Amino acid sequence: MRDEFCFLMEYDLQWFAKDGNGGEKTEPATAKKLQDARNEGQVAKSQELNSALSLIALFLMLKVFISSIGESLFRNFYVYYNKIPDVINDSIGGMSAYAASVIINNTILVIVKILAPVFAIGFTVALVSNIFQVGWKVTTKPMRPKFSKLNPLNGVKRIISKDSLFELLKSIVKVTLIAYVAYSAIKDHQNELFLLYDIPLMQVILLVGTIVIDAGLKISLVYLLVGIADWIYQKHKFKEDMKMTKQEVKDEYKNTEGNPEIKGRQRSRMREASQRRMMQNLPNADVVITNPTHYAVAIRYDASQYSAPVVVAKGEDYLAMRIKDAAREHQIEIVENKPLARMLYANVDVGEEVPPELYQAVAEVLAFVYSLRENR
């Protein structure tokens, strides 16, 4: 006979939860969460796209202005190179350090003036690219130190993660494409490169500059494709990261709009208080106009207080029955007029005067009620 064993194990059902905030993140991010993330500096942005556009602008500018830039550099090079003998001669009088510093400062200033447009265009393109991707929003929160980043466990998690693997794969693809494009661009000029020793220096510089700029433009265009693909991925990733659980959506709604249950109870109490006040004013009515089953509207007319008849109470279905019961209790006439009851219920609130277009119909009902009272 085989023994049978029964094992009882206790499980914590929280082990099977997707996260600690009420389940799997399936709901799109709310406007408030997106705005909060924006204020924190969390946006869908591709740095690759910024770099690609900046490189394209740089090489295009070099292609257009390389001749003038090169001419300026060479001209200033000859000017300051010819001043070296003066510095050597001044060294006999002890003025070499001062003269050398003047030449160096002037040289740096000239280089800055020549290259300033290049850096300005690069900065402008990078700024426009960022604004195009995420809009204009200045925040310093991403620059604030966070001690959580110093946690080695968090660092290991960032290194070994899906995002880090994607960045590694992207870097490998990027380097491979750039290397292939650079090799192809230089290979097209390989015959010209063998002639570098046989041509003048100026032609060598122009040839090398042309090769570098052409290769740079091709690399930049390939880099642009990588940047566009990365931008699309970053937007998709940001959208997925910003998703919320159903519980998070409910909690946010409670924090921003208030607890819906509490607001519902408040509306119910306000409605009950309004109905109580309405029923207290009902004994002052002159007539109750009914549908006869669905609507009931109580009318009062006092020429000393109002310029027109006033609706003192109205109700639908169950409340209409209560109004009719109260009217019978206080011996208020109940008159059936379906069109008038519907018009009054739909267009006149409690405490408001009857609109002029209904004067005639309401006056006929009041005249009928007053005649009944006189006969009695």
Rank of each mutant, 00 (worst) to 15 (best):
F5I: 11
F7M: 12
E10A: 14
Y11F: 12
Y11E: 08
Y11N: 06
L13W: 04
G22L: 04
G23H: 10
K25N: 09
P28C: 06
K33H: 10
L34E: 07
D36W: 00
Q42E: 06
A44P: 00
Q47W: 03
Q47A: 08
N50Y: 01
N50D: 07
L55N: 03
I56P: 09
L60A: 12
M61H: 08
V64Q: 09
G70F: 10
F74A: 14
R75W: 13
F77G: 13
Y78N: 11
I84H: 00
I88Y: 12
N89H: 13
D90H: 08
M95S: 15
A99N: 07
A100V: 06
S101T: 12
V102G: 07
V102H: 06
I103W: 03
N105S: 07
N105H: 05
N105Q: 08
L109A: 12
K113T: 11
P117D: 04
A120F: 15
A126T: 10
L127V: 12
L127N: 08
V134H: 03
T139R: 01
T140I: 05
R144K: 14
K146H: 10
K157Q: 12
I159Q: 04
K162Q: 07
L165P: 04
L168S: 06
L169C: 13
V175F: 13
L177I: 12
V181H: 08
K187R: 12
D188F: 15
H189L: 02
H189C: 01
Q190W: 13
D198E: 14
Q203R: 11
T210E: 09
V212K: 11
K235G: 09
F238Q: 06
K239Q: 11
E240R: 06
K254C: 01
Q266C: 13
A273L: 14
Q275E: 08
R277K: 15
Q280C: 01
P283D: 02
D286N: 04
D302N: 13
A303M: 11
A303G: 09
S304H: 07
Q305S: 07
A308V: 10
A308M: 10
K314R: 05
M321L: 11
R322S: 07
I323N: 08
K324A: 06
K338M: 04
A341W: 00
A341I: 00
R342S: 02
E352L: 15
P355S: 05
P356Y: 10
A363N: 03
A367V: 05
S371Q: 04
E374K: 11
N375M: 07
